[in-house]
Design a protein around this nucleic acid. Structure first.
Length: 271
DNA sequence: AGTGCGGCCTGTCCGC
DNA sequence: TGCGGACAGGCCGCAC
């Protein structure tokens, strides 16, 4: 599923190909995504071009002169570039057709994603405005995490997955980063020391960076008719590995549920 | 203000 | 083999 590294890989995969192409049409086959795909896309986008493909958390921000197309891939969404005469498949819900013979195609079996339009600065959009700092920004550091975690009673894992705390950390990378920094995911966020939160911060940046680097090998797939839509094999240490040996101590990895989500951890290495 | 949870969907897997 | 049901997942928006 598209976590932040896949979204960033998607951004890098499509940006160099679509910048400056003129949009010819928008085809909406299935508007019922998480929120309805606005019909106005059909009138507002044609004749324009994307000037920048940005990202905030897991949201892609495709800017034009008059506004921004906000895209979220949900759990199962993908974007790829195909020829404008390419046969569409099941779950190919939206096409942005360019005059130059290319088509940006949104595919999403589970329809948890969204395509929205805002004429304003997307940073002021309600979905984006309340988001915490980007994991790679200077604002995201051990001191910030420590200060924000004070007096928080929730688990550190729920805290990390709260987009108001930090942008774009989902279940998989919360599990991974907590393993890499040796923190028990069930521990109360407010009771963790400054130095351990600094280690967590470093682990988050490291694990995301590694995944993005791996994704780089799949960039060509974004303009490949037959290729997969840009997901890539993630090398995970702990997620979905219940019963398998911990990579550090070899004791079996455990699974539990915290805040309605699957949580994987090593009872020996994570405290 | 902080926290937990329901709901949106479909593909996959399991047991009968 | 077919079928139903549980489950997974991001994350908004509501309720407490």
């Amino acid at each position: 599923m598209p976590e932040l590294p896949e979204v960033e890989t998607t951004r890098r995969g499509i940006e160099p190909h679509i910048l400056k192409l003129v949009i010819k049409a928008v085809v909406i086959r299935q508007p019922r995504l998480r929120w309805p795909v606005p019909d106005s896309l059909k009138t507002v986008l044609p004749g324009q071009r994307f000037t920048e493909v940005g990202r905030r958390g897991k949201y892609l921000l495709l800017r034009t002169r008059t506004g921004t197309l906000i895209i979220h891939l949900g759990m199962s969404g993908s974007l790829r570039l195909v020829g404008d005469n390419s046969q569409f498949c099941k779950h190919d819900h939206v096409d942005i057709v360019f005059a130059e013979g290319l088509c940006l195609r949104y595919h999403d079996p589970r329809r948890f994603g969204c395509l929205l339009w805002t004429p304003d600065d997307p940073n002021n959009h309600s979905l984006i405005a309340s988001m915490g700092p980007e994991p790679f920004s200077d604002d995201f550091n051990g001191e910030y995490l420590y200060k924000t975690a004070r007096n928080r009673g929730s688990s550190i894992k729920a805290f990390l997955m709260d987009s108001r705390v930090v942008a774009g950390i989902g279940n998989i990378y919360a599990n991974e980063a907590l393993f890499l920094s040796g923190i028990d995911p069930r521990r109360r966020a407010g009771k963790i020391s400054r130095s351990r939160l600094q280690a967590l911060c470093t682990a988050i940046e490291g694990v995301l960076e590694n995944s993005i680097r791996q994704g780089g090998t799949t960039l060509r797939d974004f303009v490949n008719e037959s290729g997969q839509p840009g997901y890539f094999q993630q090398t995970l240490s702990i997620y979905n590995k219940e019963g398998q040996p911990c990579p550090r101590c070899r004791l079996p990895i455990r699974k539990c549920r915290t805040n309605q989500r699957s949580t994987f951890y090593c009872g020996h290495c994570q405290r």
